[in-house]
């Protein structure tokens, strides 16, 4: 009985207040979409870190004919220099940091080059002699790049030491900024949503002051008087969260599919990650609306 009664009260409240309820739904939808987007971008960063940090290597490029760095002044790398570098890589000082060492010859470099730029006309013009040989070093701890860099950058026969992680860090930086922007918008929109819920509940309480006045007089409990109002806000917010979830799902499903086709190696997050984000959105929406309505009722609905 009481349950049916509360449901009936919610329905009548939402009918009377339809325009406001719709605006609460829309505002929570937008704000939660941005919250979700920020969350998904962070998950994307984590996913890429997990995927790429195992694969990134430090590359020690050796001198070729037209290298310009100081250590290459004596021309292309000689056999002695190459052996010295290899010996140093396997030396006891460096071995704690070095996990794997692979040597890539100029011919292998050309093969990789052609694979990576298969569709580009530049491929035809490049010969093996123009590409540097290199040692590809997998590090035990990818953060310890400095050790290799210091040890080899002035070594004779070494052109440059490059850390692939630098490129990744740059990408992560951009994603981080995007996620912060999304979070910023989310915060502003959430404040808007909270205020709008407060206004809506206030109007709702005002338009039903006869009912609540009588409820009070006949001794209805505080909970039964306030519950319909709080639930009205919470239901509107949950509707917003539902729409936000559908939107994020659609973006991931179709946008993600397109991205994975375009960049198959990147390791994009899939709709599976939404399973983490969606419950959080619903919880956040319900909490914001619930807290905001309760606070409003404390001021505008005497019990």
């Amino acid at each position: 009985m009481r349950f049916a009664f509360v449901l009936g009260e919610i329905a009548s409240g939402m009918r009377r207040n339809l325009v406001m309820v719709v605006s609460v739904v829309l505002v929570t939808f937008i704000s939660l979409t941005f919250v979700g987007a920020a969350g998904l971008l962070q998950l994307q960063i984590n996913q890429m870190k997990g995927y790429w940090y195992d694969r990134v290597q430090v590359a020690v490029f050796l001198c070729v004919e037209n290298s310009t760095s100081e250590s290459c002044a004596s021309g292309p790398v000689t056999d002695e220099q190459r052996s010295a570098i290899e010996a140093k890589l396997n030396s006891p000082e460096l071995s704690p940091y070095v996990d794997t060492v692979e040597y890539e010859s100029q011919d292998q470099a050309l093969v990789h080059f052609r694979e990576q730029l298969a569709n580009s006309p530049i491929v035809e013009a490049v010969t093996a002699e123009q590409l540097p040989e290199s040692f590809r070093i997998g590090l035990v701890d990818p953060e310890k790049y400095e050790v290799i860099s210091e040890a080899f950058s002035s070594e004779p026969g070494v052109d440059i030491v490059s850390d692939q992680r630098e490129y990744l860090e740059e990408i992560f930086g951009y994603i981080n900024i995007a996620s912060l922007v999304a979070l910023g918008i989310a915060v502003v929109m959430s404040v808007g949503a909270i205020l709008l819920v407060a206004t809506t509940i206030r109007l709702s309480a005002f338009s039903r002051r006869r009912e609540t006045g009588i409820m009070r007089l006949v001794g209805a409990s505080k909970a039964i008087i306030q519950l319909p109002f709080v639930l009205e806000g919470v239901i509107a917010a949950i509707l917003g969260a539902a729409i936000a979830s559908c939107t994020l799902w659609a973006v991931l499903r179709y946008g993600g599919e397109w991205l994975s086709r375009e960049y198959p190696q990147m390791g994009f997050i899939s709709t599976q990650e939404l399973l983490l984000v969606i419950p959080a959105l619903f919880l956040l929406g319900a909490l914001l609306a619930g807290a905001s309505s309760l606070l409003t009722l404390r001021r505008y609905l005497k019990v």
């Binding site: 009985m1 009664f5 009588i214 409820m215 006949v218 001794g219 209805a220 039964i224």
Partner: peptide, 13 residues
């Protein structure tokens, strides 16, 4: 209404 809000059952009402 006065009975509903204090949780009286439909039959009693």
């Amino acid at each position: 209404f006065a009975m509903q809000v204090i949780g009286k059952s439909r039959a009693v009402i």
